[in-house]
C-alpha cells in the first residue's frame, strides 16, 4: 500500500469520525430539546393559569332569594317524616364535659358560626333550620348559594333571620360573606362580627374551621353531619321537597342530622317540648348524641 493510499484512508477515517461526532452532538441536542421543551411546556401551563387568574374578573354573587313556600317546607317538616328517617346518615356531634352551660335570655343557647361562602356551612344550615324550627319559629330566611368558587352549594342564610322560642335561644352568626377579601382569616369579607365569648368558644371547640355549632356548651359539632356534594347539584326547591320524602337521600342526610341536633337540644331543654323530645326520630337519634 502506497503512502498516498494510507493518507487517503486516514483522511476518510477522520471524516467518518467527524461525521459520527457531529451526528452524536445533533442527537444530544435533539434529546435536550425534547426534555427541555417538555419541562418548559409544563412551566408555561402554570404561567398561563396564573395569568388567567390575574386577568379574571371577580366572581359575582347572586342576590339572595326569598321564597315563602320553600321556607315553609324546611321549617315544618312533618314529625312522621323525621320519625321514619331516624338517624339517617348523620354523624359528628361531640359531647362536652365540664363546661359551663351556654345560655342567653335565661334560656339554653344554640350557637351557630359560619359563613355564606362556605360549602360545608351551606349543607349544615338546612339541618339546623329544620331542627330549631321544632322548638320555635324561624323566619326571614333567604336562599343563597355558597361561593361560586367554593362548590356553589344551594343553601339558606341565617343573616337577617329571626327566631323565637320559649325553650331556647338560637344565635346564628354568619361570620363571613361571599365576597373575597384576602385580609380576613378566611379570605372573605366579614358579614357579622361574633362576640368575644363566641370567638372564645370557636377557638376552643371548632378546630379553626366553620361551620361550628355549639348546643348549650354541652354538645358541639366542629364540622359537618353529611357531605355537601349530596345536595350540590340540586335546586333549593328540590332540597325543600326532598326533606318531605323520608325515602330520599336528601331526607336521610338533612332530616337525619336534624334529628341528631334535636336530640342534643332536648338534652339542654330538659326534654322540652315533650312531643318533639319523645318522638321516635329524636329518641332514635339519642344514641348518636
Amino acid at each position: 500500500m502506497g503512502k498516498a493510499e494510507r493518507n487517503r484512508r486516514t483522511i476518510t477515517r477522520e471524516r467518518i469520525a467527524a461525521q459520527q461526532a457531529a451526528a452524536q452532538r445533533a442527537e444530544q441536542r435533539r434529546k435536550a430539546l425534547v426534555a427541555g421543551g417538555t419541562v418548559l411546556a409544563v412551566l408555561a401551563l402554570v404561567i398561563v393559569i396564573i395569568v388567567v387568574k390575574a386577568t379574571q374578573a371577580p366572581a359575582k354573587t347572586a342576590a339572595p332569594v326569598q321564597n315563602a313556600t320553600w321556607a315553609q317546607e324546611i321549617t315544618t317538616v312533618p314529625a312522621a317524616t323525621f320519625n321514619q328517617v331516624g338517624v339517617g346518615a348523620s354523624a359528628g356531634l361531640k359531647s362536652v364535659t365540664g363546661a359551663a352551660p351556654l345560655t342567653s335570655g335565661g334560656k339554653p343557647e344554640v350557637l351557630y358560626m359560619g359563613g355564606e361562602y362556605c360549602p360545608y356551612c351551606a349543607a349544615e344550615r338546612w339541618a339546623m333550620a329544620a331542627a330549631v324550627s321544632r322548638f320555635g319559629s324561624l323566619s326571614g330566611l333567604h336562599f343563597i348559594h355558597s361561593s361560586p368558587a367554593d362548590g356553589n352549594v344551594p343553601t339558606i342564610t341565617f343573616y337577617k333571620s329571626s327566631y323565637t322560642s320559649k325553650y331556647l335561644s338560637f344565635v346564628p352568626v354568619e361570620w363571613y360573606g361571599e365576597t373575597e377579601d384576602s385580609s380576613t382569616p378566611f379570605g372573605h369579607v366579614y358579614l357579622q362580627h361574633p362576640s368575644t365569648q363566641q370567638v372564645a368558644l370557636f377557638n376552643k371547640y371548632a378546630g379553626r374551621a366553620i361551620p361550628f355549632l355549639d348546643i348549650g356548651n354541652q354538645y358541639v359539632l366542629p364540622g359537618v353531619s353529611y357531605l355537601f356534594t349530596d345536595i350540590q347539584n340540586l335546586t333549593w326547591s328540590q332540597i325543600a321537597a326532598g326533606m318531605q320524602d323520608p325515602s330520599s337521600k336528601v331526607a336521610k342526610d338533612i332530616d337525619g342530622a336534624a334529628n341528631v341536633i334535636s336530640a342534643a337540644i332536648c338534652k339542654i331543654t330538659h326534654g322540652q317540648p315533650g312531643n318533639v323530645c319523645t318522638s321516635a326520630g329524636v329518641t332514635a337519634a339519642e344514641g348518636s348524641v
Partner: peptide, 29 residues
C-alpha cells in the same frame, strides 16, 4: 382536626381554605 397545618391562614396563602375546600376531595369521597 386537632392537627393544624403550620401555615398562614390569612390572605392568599391559606392552607385551611384549600384543604377544607370542595376541591380537597376527588369525586366528593
Amino acid at each position: 382536626t386537632h392537627v393544624l397545618l403550620v401555615c398562614s391562614d390569612k390572605g392568599v396563602i391559606n392552607c385551611a381554605e384549600v384543604t377544607t375546600s370542595s376541591q380537597s376531595m376527588v369525586f366528593g369521597v
